[in-house]
Design a protein around this nucleic acid. Structure first.
Length: 259
DNA sequence: ATGGTGGACAATCCA
């Protein structure tokens, strides 16, 4: 496996975030990045801006909502959009291969609120992802699964576990499926490198005034690896420096380093 | 504080 860093980032519009992302890529030089919420149709995807700084891109978008992309220094092959939600129209899944690494990038539905149709859609989508892993992937292959899962796993993964318990993004039904996904054969890379550590958040709601400064965050973005890939990781961290710049996303960059 | 912010897109929907 090539050494370097892999990252995941919910851009909340890749066009609005393009200057920030280009600067970040030039500074960090990751091997590749999983991007969610690109919010751009394929014909308008800013491929040229990434090519100029040495990144290839594969993507699938739609008008106004959703959209996923993988950026990579190496050629991306075996690009596929046939994952969970194959029968759904949302652009939430993209997989590809970079060298000997198989990549799966997901944007799990946000879910709105428990007891709603959207929440059931989220649970169904997550169950379909679990089935996809069981039917099409192997726990012993070189597989990296990343993205915005819109679920915080443990009390330490949210700023107010008592107050948020049972709410969307911190609900036992979501957490149960998330745990099944891990039990299938994926390791939560950040948590394994930082057991028990608090204040490891990747998302801060825009609607909470000064939520970032007040550390009112959630850890809902993940880099998950099969055991053989995890064994190659040397560290994992959250880069929220972009939050201090103009036009930050509501998410941070999550990065894993590999031998 | 029953709001708040931000993005897309063109009146609201989504997060």
């Amino acid at each position: 496996m090539e050494s370097g860093k892999w990252a995941t980032y919910n851009a909340n519009s890749i066009r609005a975030r393009l200057p920030l992302m280009v600067e970040w890529l030039k500074r960090e030089r990751p091997r590749g990045v999983f991007v969610q919420e690109t919010k751009v149709q394929d014909k308008d995807f800013p491929s040229a801006a990434f090519e100029e700084i040495g990144y290839r891109s594969v993507f699938r978008g739609q008008k106004a909502y959703n959209g996923v992309a993988i950026l990579s220094e190496e050629p991306l092959t075996d690009v596929s959009f046939d994952g969970p939600g194959k029968d759904m129209t949302d652009a939430r899944f993209i997989s590809a291969r970079a060298g000997d690494l198989r990549l799966i990038n997901v944007y799990v539905p946000q879910g709105f609120s428990p007891g709603t149709e959207k929440f059931q859609y989220k649970l169904g989508w997550m169950r379909a992802l679990l089935s996809f892993l069981k039917n099409h992937c192997m726990p012993d292959e070189f597989l990296l699964v990343g993205g915005d899962f819109n679920v915080a796993l443990e009390p330490m993964d949210v700023y107010d576990p008592e107050g948020l318990r049972g709410q969307v993004g911190f609900h036992p039904e979501e957490q149960a499926i998330m745990k099944q996904i891990l039990e299938w054969g994926l390791v939560d890379i950040l948590r394994m490198h930082h057991p028990g550590e608090r204040d490891l958040y990747t998302f801060w709601d825009y609607r909470i005034p000064n939520g970032f400064k007040r550390r009112m965050g959630w850890r809902i973005d993940y880099l998950l690896a099969t055991r053989p890939v995890f064994e190659k990781t040397t560290g994992c961290w959250i880069d929220d420096k972009s939050r201090t710049l103009a036009q930050p996303s509501d998410h941070a960059f999550l990065i894993a380093a590999m031998l």
